[in-house]
Amino acid sequence: MTKPRIAVHQFNSCGGCQLALLDPGSLLAELSQCFEIVHFAMAGFLDEGAEVDVALVEGSISSAPERERIEQVRARSGYLVAYGACAASGGLQALRNQADGSQWIAELFDRPERIGLLPAATPITDHVKVDWTLWGCPVNGRRVRSLLRDILSGVRPKRDSRPLCMECKERQLICTLVTQGQPCMGPVTQAGCGALCPAFGRACYACFGPSEQVNHSALAGRLQGLGLSKAETARRFRFIHGNASPFRLAAHGLEEE
């Protein structure tokens, strides 16, 4: 039986999500047993233009060459996964979308004209059809493997967009918001990390993106009740997934008020 072909593409990102396939290296060996790895530059496989069955796409679309490249990737890939926070919502770099990007570039570079950024850093789904989205900054390794197994077996992956609070309760952790008055984003954030921050006694900062049925105004009210200003509350939403629509709307509302 021929193995399905897989490619891992990097767009604008920190490269950290690819480590879920490389750390430790035995994962790469396992991947290569199940798939024919066609393109994965960080791991030494180079054939960017090849046709593949599965493409994992890390990073946001921030420049014109990237916009062209994602269309080529889409055209040559069967099942395309937006892999990680930057691919899912634009990531931290999408915070520039609210600012005057050209002004920033002018301040940072002596010759700003050679920096060819698009006006906004955007998620993959703004440009091409995405078959599955894996959230997380970084993605969770267990979820990556479970997704790849589902793809291999031809079953539809299971969507789990419950709020982090559910995972936190399953682990029987103590609520940082209720008991310590910390500005926890758990009620509006997707589960999937294993409720890491509450386990460390600290507030979740929403690195897994918005959960289902986000009630952002209730949480915004609660955070302000804890003593956060409107601007501080807005900055909690406008963070790693500040470009994801429920969080963007929440922050926008607070900034407008």
Binding site: E66, Q93, L108, I115
Partner: peptide
Amino acid sequence: PPRLFEKLVEGRG
């Protein structure tokens, strides 16, 4: 492409 981190952190605590 640059992600402009030096600017992203401006205004943050």
